[in-house]
Amino acid sequence: MGKYFRELSVAAALVLLLVVLAGIAPAFFELQPLLSRLTAQTPALIVAVGMTLVIICRQIDISVGSQFGVCAVVAGLLAAAGLPLSVVLLASMAAGAAMGALNGWLVAGLGLPSIVVTLATMVTWQEALRLFQQGKFINLPAGVQWFGLAQQRGQLTLIATAVVLLTCAAWAMKNLAAGRHVYAVGTDAEAARLAGINPRGITLGVFILLGALAGLAATLNIVQSPQVDPKAGGGLELKAIAAAVVGGVAVNGGRGNLWGVFVGLLLLATINPALTYLHVEAYWEKAIQGLVILLAVVADGIRSRKGGAK
């Protein structure tokens, strides 16, 4: 209980919200809208997985939304050119990994603070994309949407992909040496080095992984609609960071659990539609998201101060 108190309290908040919704707005649980809402969250979930690793490693990446945009356009153009989806996916992930590698090199190789590095790359990729694409949408050939499946099966495929990925990542973080090394580096990079771990390699690795996952997420996003919106990644970094922070990942590294992030993302993603169903204006979404982030860090701050005094 004690160990997962933070994750469980977020889960309790989610359950509470769902119970309230069940009482007041049973329409929330109708299958097709629910499925659509869940599908819409799959890219965010995949990015949040990568972001969690970066934060556990005591770094941050706010360029992931821009990376997502670039990957989406790469994937869209290749798909529009008629290449098979598997090639599209690989190319998109490779593009993401390359952008992640640049971040990782600047942070791990040159020792620059990740916040400023990714701020700079965020602006650079975003503007390069605007310059290249001029905001134009890309029309996709017919077979791309939902992988050419029926909508519901396509949605289920997407959700299943994201959940399998999450499960694998959570398993790897717990059971692979590499996963444990991420925690060790985030806790104390110097001690990790003394224990024979290569902190630079690990840091570079999590940035590359996040980039690749952004590429995957972008590909899974373009199959959801007949067109590619080059601005689709806007605000994604914030969503992913918010999910991680709300889900109990410590912003100063070393602590966090992917299942907690999953619950955190579901909570944040439920708030907005819940507002609509509860007849609160939807414009409050961002404000509430900010408030939830602040509440989470304040709660963690108070907890750690109490713990420190012990």
Partner: peptide
């Protein structure tokens, strides 16, 4: 002591005692 506070006792001992390759299972 120079231990990793966020990791378990067993894990700390393991990290100290062996150099596992990254893709090995714990």
């Amino acid at each position: 002591p120079a231990l990793f506070p966020d990791l378990s006792v067993a894990e700390n001992i393991a990290l100290r005692l062996e150099k596992t390759s990254a893709w090995q299972r714990v």
